[in-house]
């Protein structure tokens, strides 16, 4: 099976029911996506699958042949962050930070489909992503900031 992760092609031999999350974390050593719940209730594992945000704990390896996966590491780097990551830095969203990789991937998907989201758009897109530290007001502010930056 062949999967492209952050632009790098991988040949993979694992059980077909292994979730993409654990394929990334324990087989490929890509640690940005996080395990929080395993049942799509928290969103900490969110990645882009062929450009669309998915809960990687719910995607099975057997369905991935030929897929392109982007994790938070594939967006940008500390030296050259993606515009959404930059907004997250400028708004200082993170507290513990554990959910933020997933929040950022979800926000990237939102802004891809809805470049100027309303509050309601943000609510609809982001309410599957849990933040136990309750950084929610700053998540909203960072999405607005990223939307303005991209629109400018």
């Amino acid at each position: 099976m062949q999967v492209t992760v952050n632009g790098t092609s991988h040949q993979i031999e694992v059980e077909p029911d292994m979730p993409l999350l654990w394929l990334l974390r324990d087989e490929l050593g890509i640690l940005g996506p996080k395990y929080g719940c395993g049942i799509a209730a928290c969103g900490a594992c969110t990645v882009l699958l062929d450009g669309v945000a998915v809960r990687s704990c719910q995607v099975q390896a057997g369905d991935l042949d030929g897929a392109e996966v982007t994790t938070v590491e594939g967006l940008g780097t500390p030296e050259a962050p993606h515009p959404v990551q930059k907004a997250w830095i400028e708004e200082q969203v993170a507290q513990c930070g554990y959910c933020q990789s997933g929040q950022i991937m979800q926000a990237v998907d939102l802004l891809r489909t809805t470049p100027n989201p309303t509050d309601e758009d943000i609510d609809d897109a982001m309410s599957g992503n849990l933040c136990r530290c309750a950084s929610y007001p700053r998540i909203r502010a960072a999405i607005r900031r990223a939307a303005q930056a991209e629109g400018a």
Binding site: V72, E73, L75, I89, Q92, A94, G97
Partner: peptide, 27 residues
């Protein structure tokens, strides 16, 4: 202030206990 950990936590490079990776490690 800018938090010293804010860039790492915004780029997926912050490392937690679940991310500890050592040679020959068992899970």
């Amino acid at each position: 202030m800018r938090r010293t950990d804010i860039v790492a936590k915004s780029t997926g490079t912050a490392r937690y206990g679940t991310d500890v990776t050592l040679p020959d490690m068992l899970h």
